[in-house]
Structure formats: structure tokens, C-alpha cells
Amino acid sequence: MRKPLTIAMPKGRIFEEAAELMKKAGYDLLGEQEESRKLILEFPEQNIRIMMAKPMDVVTYVEYGTADIGIAGKDVLLEQDRDVYEVLDLGISPCYIAVAGLPDQPLSKIAPKIATKYPKVASDYFREQGEQIEIIPLNGSIEIAPLIGLADRIVDIVSTGRTLKENGLVEYEKIVGITSRMIVNPVSYRLKSKEIDEMVNQLSEVVGEDFA
């Protein structure tokens, strides 16, 4: 019996969108399990095992090889810089990382403070701009930081811009566009290349990429 192909997927909306793509590509991973709280779902007839993970953790499972494949946001890949193959842009959950803050507030000249969930992305970006900044790491509700004077700017994910607007913040610069990517463990990429290439080829037809 072959070992199943293990796929780490983020819970929630991305899972549904990704599962929809997989279905179109010929892998039916939806079913009654949707509502379940199980973290590992088995699909023996397709020889696939799904691990439900926190979006930030998917890349970790794939790098260590406990999952062969993962669906991960480009934001996480940029932030964590892991040793995995990024094989396909699935084009789902499009959004972008941007710099935002209170309107008409110039960046402080002395040690500007940036609040963010993405310390690496933020410091790489400001370094490229020739600005030395200080990072204040936060885990959520980043938009509060400029309102209460904790930071001059925030670096965060923007999808519709509604949260920014409702909190009286404006977007200053777009840093990078984000979509979900299919990633592969470097060893699985070689040793399970047949199954994985097939999946990548089928998925790339669904998402309309012209090579795999």
C-alpha cells in the first residue's frame, strides 16, 4: 500500500476555495467532513490525506516533510523564507500587503515605529526604501496601533480596504500582491514527483497557468 499524499491546508475560507479548485482538477476533497472538527481527513480512494492547519503553520509542516504539499499564502512564504518549492499560484484569496497610517502624518524622522504581523516583510521593505525603522510586532487588530499612538504606520494585509477606512486610516504604499500558492517539500518533490506533477498539471489547467 502506498503512503498517502499528505496535503496541509489552512482552515476556513481558503480551504473551501482550494477544495473547489481541487475538485475541478479531479480531486474530490469535499464532503460531509466539511463541518467536522477533525484535523486529519482521510480520502483513501484517492490516496490523499488532508491536515487542517493554521495558515501560518502550513509552511512549517511542509518544510519538515510531515506534509508533502501545502496551500499557503504568499504573505507567509515571504515572512518565513522556508526551504520549500513554490510550484503554483492558485490565484485564490487575492489581497496585498500595504503600508497604512493616519492621513497626512509624515513618517517620524527619529526611529519611526511600524506595527505589524509581518516583521520581516516590513523591515525588508523599509530597508529597500532607505528608511531605518523599528518594528512593533502585533498578532491582530493592527489598525489600533496608529490610533492609540503606538506606531507611526502599520504594515498589514489589505483585501477590500474597509477595515482601514472604518478606522480612519489611509493606505500609503502597496508593498506586494498576495495570493495562495501551492508549495511542495523538497524531498517529496523528487520522490513523489509522479503524483505531485500530475496534481500540479491538473491544477494549473484549472487556474489557467501555461506551465507547471
Binding site: 526551504d83 520549500v84 518549492y85 513554490e86 510550484v87 503554483l88 499560484d89 500558492r181 523538497p186 497557468e209 501555461d210 506551465f211 507547471a212
Partner: peptide, 29 residues
């Protein structure tokens, strides 16, 4: 860096002929 998506995007953005782009994509296969 094993970033095939980045490679693909960079190739698409190059100012070269379609045939050259196809060859560059072909390398991946």
C-alpha cells in the same frame, strides 16, 4: 530558491519574444 511561481512571473515580464519565453518555461520541464 525553488520559487517556480516567481520564475514564471519574471519570464512573463521579460521583453523577449514569445518563443524565447516558451523556451524559458520549457526549461522547467
Amino acid at each position: 530558491r525553488k520559487n517556480h511561481v516567481g520564475y514564471q512571473e519574471a519570464v512573463k515580464a521579460l521583453a523577449v519574444s514569445d518563443e524565447a519565453k516558451r523556451s524559458l518555461m520549457g526549461l522547467m520541464k
